[in-house]
Simulated assay, not measured.
Amino acid sequence: MDIEAWVWWLIGAAGLGIPLVITAMPEFGMLAVGAVAASAAAGLGVGPVLQVLVFVIVSVALIAVVRPIANRHRSQRPELATGIDALKGRQAVVLERVDGSGGRIKLAGEVWSARALDGGSSYQPGQQVDVVEIDGATAVVL
């Protein structure tokens, strides 16, 4: 029994999918897509030379386009603020009058000592303030 060319291309695509899963190298996936494209070309009755050409063109095009995009996204990981860095820029509620010399706020569910960024400013209980920075155990607010 003769197996048609498009079936061989699909077997090749499945074969390229195995190292993709084992090694997590996306290039194998792009080659597998090229094999599927060649299988489609074979199903349309295209000759063997053009099938190989379709495989090569699709595979190379995917590698040339997708790989640089993936590398760019891999190197631009989102920065996750933790600890006191995560508190900067958050809003807090004044519990006790806050001025240049001190006071108390509720920040992220905890009571913090606080002082105003501008020594001449003061904030009354109930007011919303923004945390500019954390200085030791004191929140500097605005």
Rank of each mutant, 00 (worst) to 15 (best):
G34T: 05
I63M: 11
A42E: 04
A35M: 04
G45A: 12
S75D: 02
A70C: 06
G47S: 10
V33K: 03
V52R: 10
H73N: 15
V52K: 04
I69L: 12
A41M: 11
A64K: 05
A81Y: 10
L31Q: 01
A32F: 07
R74L: 14
P48S: 12
R74F: 11
L62I: 08
R67K: 12
A42M: 10
S75T: 10
S59C: 02
A40D: 00
I69T: 06
L44W: 15
V66P: 06
S75I: 13
A70K: 07
V54T: 06
V33T: 08
H73P: 06
A61I: 12
R67F: 09
Q51I: 02
I63V: 13
V56E: 01
R72Y: 12
S59G: 04
R67N: 06
L50C: 00
A70T: 07
P48T: 09
V58C: 01
V54M: 03
A70R: 11
V49D: 07
A70I: 15
L31V: 07
A61D: 02
V65I: 15
L50Q: 08
V60Q: 00
S39Q: 06
G43V: 14
P78A: 07
Q76S: 14
G45C: 11
L50M: 12
A41V: 03
I57H: 02
R77V: 05
L31D: 00
A81M: 15
